[in-house]
């Protein structure tokens, strides 16, 4: 399996990639916040403006952008193929369309979870 083929919007692994990225980001976030609070807790007076929330926010923003970009790429691929292959039995438009939706769902999940960075100070129990 070559890498370049796997990165095509039509490769079935695209169906799994978005949420895999989300899950890895989510675990990194949870682990990072827990360890950060354990070793270098910011003072509660800082509220939401502290190094943990800031780092988490930046990482989340990057992942969100990545997922949205992937969604757009897959969606464009789908539109191109849907125009070309009306009636064709190949599954490629299927994969690109579903992958676009899955990337978008993962982006939504990223956005919703990172919204909480604005609602909770990190280390209070």
């Amino acid at each position: 399996m070559q890498m370049s083929k796997m990165l095509q919007p039509t490769h079935p692994l695209q169906l799994l990639a978005g949420h895999t990225v989300w899950l890895l980001w989510f675990c990194a976030l949870y682990a990072g916040v827990s360890l950060g609070c354990q070793w270098f807790p910011p003072s509660p007076q800082q509220g939401f403006w502290n190094w943990i929330s800031a780092t988490a926010g930046l990482l989340s923003g990057a992942i969100l952008a990545l997922l949205l970009w992937a969604a757009i790429c897959c969606w464009r691929s789908f539109r191109r193929q849907a125009v070309r292959s009306a009636g064709d039995a190949q599954p490629r438009p299927f994969v690109a369309a579903v992958a676009a939706g899955l990337y978008l769902l993962a982006a939504l999940a990223t956005g919703l979870v990172s919204l909480t960075l604005l609602l909770s100070a990190p280390c209070l129990q």
Binding site: L108, L112, L115, T116, L119, S120, A121, L124
Partner: peptide, 16 residues
């Protein structure tokens, strides 16, 4: 999506 966003916006600060 709208429901859960509102819930989080109301509930999490309450928990805080």
């Amino acid at each position: 999506l709208i429901t859960v966003t509102i819930l989080l916006l109301l509930g999490l600060p309450a928990g805080h």
